[in-house]
Write a protein that binds this DNA or RNA. Structure first.
Lengths: 252, 252
DNA sequence: CGGATTTTTGAAAACCATCAACGCGGGTGG
DNA sequence: CCACCCGCGTTGATGGTTTTCAAAAATCCG
């Protein structure tokens, strides 16, 4: 099963009509008013398939487009002068990518694919038109951004104040929650594309320490991470360890 | 001079007409269209003065109001179960506080004053009306939120990937930039209300380590922090150490 | 099967936390 | 006005978490 899911990434599902979009109820789309769908469709200038490990856009460069992720996994990140990387967000189907482009000349971060990915591409200007014509949608995006900021603040607390074990547990639980909302889990298992290096870069750790900490979590019977597959062995225990409340698991 | 500035906090400046508001060009207000001022004024249900070290609202509680900070310093933060604190953002005049209340039942963080503070208070429902009536303002807020998210992502990178010295340097430079935009600096000196414990909680460090690191920065002739006053001794050197580019210094 | 990527392991060191104590200074109350 | 108290910053000793460096083992992919 996992294998076939992984194989899927080689030819990602491609989007069709916005009105029938299956990811429409997720993330940035969750509140798109039906009346705006026509405009959303017309602002969508094209679709695009991007292979794994390719950048979608680059930090400090300009961008004329923004995207929604239709299928596949990706992430946003920043690079420091010495090459160290901080992953800011893992992008899942429904994620809106590159809003910054709407108003600013330079992107504040890069975006890169993890799997092969299919994107809905929106021309910057057309998207601005859409916002002007459909303030309800604009309002929905404002809500989406507010919620995104809250998620980012949780991660900030994790990096600032939690030890490695909790950081890892919480990130896995967060992704588990998002995937559950998308019906992309199989019981307590799910396909998981980030490598240990990605976890490290998202959590402010080194891959070595991530490796060691994952072993502890496995030995404690809480969590198992194999290549491309994560299995939560003890959800209750993991939540407890991670101090992860139910309310943290909704809405994006 | 510092003395008198500190004394000012005991009776903060109170707001008058939105149309003549001196902080209107900062942060959340920077793009308020003149046409929206009338509505902004009418959405403003009252003013409020809050003494130092008081919460403005509480994490996990609901809120019926949102605020803009008119005068004084404050910050937002989250508490962990064991009492550890993560400061998310320092709030300066012009900051919009508590947007989350517009759509969500529970606040994702708390807000607390550092000095005595004066707030413009907006009723949640009236503010929603304002957005409905003035989509230009709504659009401006969307831009503001986007930019806030980018700032948060910089801090995330700092916590994840930078050592204590750089974190401190960068936070000071960020605040210096924001204060400069507000004309609240005196050359390379400025009034600075956070204590070392606040820096620690914002940067994911302990107050002890902040103290030691500040001593190093002082000995290196880069930065001096006394009670209520910060002085940048060597701006160029500090920027270099902090890897702080000019573009990081604008727009919020 | 062979090369590349990813994960694991070990040893040593760096960075930062913890704990505890002391000093300084400002504000407050007697 | 002075003494006291409390918040805040400092200092030292010690320990833990995490990093670094290097290398080997495991896994994947073509």
């Amino acid at each position: 099963m996992v294998k076939s899911a992984a194989r899927l990434r080689l030819s990602p599902v491609q989007p069709g009509l916005c009105a029938k979009c299956p990811v429409r109820k997720f993330a940035a789309y969750s509140g798109v008013p039906a009346s705006a769908l026509k405009f959303l469709q017309s602002a969508r200038s094209s679709d695009r398939i991007v292979p794994p490990r390719r950048n979608i856009f680059w930090e400090e460069k300009g961008a004329d487009e923004l995207f929604t992720l239709y299928d596949g996994w990706a992430f946003t990140f920043k690079l420091l002068a010495d090459g160290r990387r901080q992953i800011l967000e893992f992008l899942l189907p429904g994620s809106l990518i590159g809003m910054h482009a709407l108003w600013f000349k330079a992107m504040p971060h890069s975006a890169q694919t993890l799997t092969s990915v299919s994107l809905c591409v929106f021309d910057k200007e057309k998207f601005r038109d859409l916002l002007r014509r459909k303030p309800e949608y604009e309002r929905e995006l404002l809500k989406y951004m507010t919620s995104s900021l809250a998620v980012r603040d949780r991660r900030l607390s994790d990096l600032g104040r939690r030890p490695a074990k909790e950081r890892i547990a919480r990130l896995i639980l967060e992704i588990f929650g998002r995937l559950t909302a998308r019906d992309m889990v199989d019981g307590h298992s799910f396909t998981f594309y980030p490598r240990q290096q990605h976890l490290a870069d998202a959590l402010g750790l080194t891959k070595v320490h991530v490796s060691r900490t994952l072993q502890v979590l496995r030995q404690e019977g809480l969590l198992e991470l194999e290549r491309d597959t994560a299995t939560i062995l003890d959800l209750k225990g993991l939540r407890e360890l991670a101090d992860y409340t139910e309310t943290e698991a909704s809405g994006w």
